[in-house]
């Protein structure tokens, strides 16, 4: 028997919205520690990895490891029926072919029950090694979203280059070219919210090219976190990570573009 409950069901809806345009369906792997999900886009350029810790749930019970094969578009249809402040409970039997989703309003005056049919998904799981990245940037997620959206009107590819002082996003296209640089926030600045700062940890300057179409897709997760962390290395995937306070994180890996 698998059972979990989230006070803010809305968070789960946002999570599904953050993966469903990239990956059609996937296996929720539930064990005693939490829930994880991994999926690749159809052209195998991007990988999304979701990790939810049991501590983030108000209730969590997993007697035996279960795999829930879920079609995200179908799940999203059911989650649409959930109220913005509803509590969400998910239940599944060990060998069942469906999972139940219960939405309950704050004052318990409205309870909705949905039963989602599960799928058998034969999906290869990739092993993502722990890597030391050459540059790690933490910045406001809304700022990253705006940059990706605005630059994609000019070109398809963004070049991200990082130095100790700044991170630069450059684009070129038929109409011309441009770049936007964000300077590392002053370390002595004790005023203001940390989540509004730009922090750069650098081992070595890096520059890599990425498809803006995918980065724009990743920014669907902006609603989940005030900040986003970008980790870059040479000739390795970019990691775009959104951390949710104590619930866990969603990470997107994007393979770089290289000169042929």
């Amino acid at each position: 028997m698998f059972e979990c409950a989230l006070i803010q069901g809305e968070l789960f809806r946002k999570l599904i919205a953050s993966v469903q345009d990239l990956v059609q369906d996937g296996n929720f792997m539930c064990d005693a520690n939490g829930i994880s999900l991994q999926g690749m886009d159809s052209s195998h350029v991007a990988l999304v990895a979701l990790a939810l810790k049991k501590e983030g749930f108000v209730e969590y019970r997993c007697d035996r490891d279960v795999t829930l094969g879920i079609n995200f578009a179908n799940l999203a249809k059911m989650l649409k029926c959930m109220g913005a402040k509803d509590r969400l409970s998910i239940r599944a039997q060990d060998e069942g072919d469906s999972a139940s989703f219960v939405f309950e309003s704050e004052d318990s005056s409205r309870v909705s029950n949905f039963e989602l049919k599960l799928m058998q998904i034969d999906q290869e799981q990739l092993g993502v090694p722990e890597t030391q990245y050459k540059a790690v940037i933490r910045m406001p997620s809304s700022e990253f979203q705006r940059i990706c959206k605005d630059l994609s009107a000019i070109g398809d590819t963004v070049s991200i280059s990082v130095t100790k002082e700044a991170v630069k996003f450059s684009v070129g296209g038929d109409i011309g070219s441009g770049d936007m640089s964000l300077r590392q926030s002053e370390s002595g600045d004790v005023d203001g919210d940390d989540s509004e700062k730009v922090m750069i940890e650098l081992e070595e300057p890096v520059q890599q090219n990425f498809a803006l179409r995918y980065l724009n897709n990743f920014t669907k997760a902006t609603a989940l976190s005030k900040t986003v962390t970008l980790s870059l290395g040479t000739d390795m995937p970019l990691v775009t990570e959104y951390k949710m306070d104590n619930l866990g994180s969603i990470r997107y890996y994007l393979a770089p573009k290289i000169d042929e």
């Binding site: 290869e124 990739l126 092993g127 090694p129 090219n209 390795m236 890996y253 290289i258 042929e260």
Partner: peptide, 14 residues
């Protein structure tokens, strides 16, 4: 010309 790499090249299959 810029060429997009396949991500499977970077990560091994479990």
């Amino acid at each position: 010309h810029i060429f997009q790499i396949n991500i499977v090249l970077f990560f091994s299959t479990k």
